[in-house]
């Protein structure tokens, strides 16, 4: 059986907010290491990779690997019924037809349980190779969110160029062009999460659909910083680390000149 108790139930809401615009269903894989999910959007352009490590739960028991296939829209509806301060317990049997969500208020004066039907989902796991990124940019997640939103007001595609001087975001649309350059500022007085850091072995430049990047920024409440990893001619990775718990990572295939 699988049983996991999470003290910060609000975290689940944030995780679901970060995926609900991209996928409609997914297999949550319960394993002794933690709860994970890998799913592509319907057009196979982007991939979501979530890990919530077992150590991040107050109580975690998983005897064997269990794929928990869930409709994300319905899951969002159910988790919305939890208070943001509630403690959430997720429970299911080894071959589940249902998953139980137990919500306990912080003061223990209200307990609710919801049972949700599971579904069988064909697993299409992609092997994402562990790779060394040619360029890694760490920046405040709110800054990245703002930037993607501003760029999307002008164009559909953003070209991201990373050099040791900084990261240049450029877009072109019917009304004109926009360029935003974010410079690394590691020596300033900013707190670590307010800094932009760039590590590169060689300059990288590629174009990406803003529609997807904007969806990824729904993960902003999960982390004060976001990390972009790029390798020439390969998908970009956009990672939001969840403190003491794991990550929400997105991979996005580039656009090329036809």
């Amino acid at each position: 059986m699988f049983e996991a108790r999470l003290l910060q139930g609000g975290l689940l809401k944030k995780v679901l907010d970060s995926i609900k615009d991209i996928i409609t269903e997914g297999n949550f894989d319960c394993s002794p290491n933690g709860l994970s999910l890998q799913a592509m959007d319907s057009s196979h352009v982007s991939l979501i990779d979530i890990l919530l490590e077992s150590e991040g739960f107050e109580h975690y028991r998983c005897d064997r690997n269990i794929p928990m296939g869930l409709n994300i829209t319905n899951l969002v509806k159910m988790i919305k019924c939890a208070g943001s301060e509630d403690i959430v317990t997720i429970k299911c049997e080894d071959k589940p037809d249902n998953v139980t969500f137990l919500f306990e208020s912080k003061d223990n004066d209200k307990i609710s349980d919801f049972e949700m039907k599971t579904m069988t989902i064909d697993d299409e796991h992609l092997l994402v190779p562990d790779q060394t990124y040619t360029a890694v940019v760490k920046m405040p997640s709110a800054e990245f969110q703002r930037l993607c939103r501003d760029m999307a007001a002008i164009g559909d595609t953003v070209n991201i160029s990373v050099t040791k001087e900084g990261v240049r975001f450029s877009t072109t649309g019917d009304m004109g062009t926009a360029n935003i350059t974010v410079r690394p500022n590691p020596s300033g007085d900013q707190k670590e999460e307010e800094r932009t850091e760039v590590q590169i072995t060689e300059p990288v430049s590629a174009g990406f659909a803003l529609r997807y990047l904007n969806s990824f920024t729904k993960a902003t409440p999960l982390s004060p910083t976001v990390t972009l990893g790029m390798v020439p001619n390969l998908p970009i990775v956009v990672e939001y680390k969840i403190a003491d718990m794991g990550h929400v990572r997105y991979y996005l295939a580039p656009k090329i000149e036809d």
Partner: peptide, 14 residues
Amino acid sequence: QEMQLRLDSFFSFS
């Protein structure tokens, strides 16, 4: 004209 590539042309299915 720009073309959107798909992820399965980069990563293989397990």
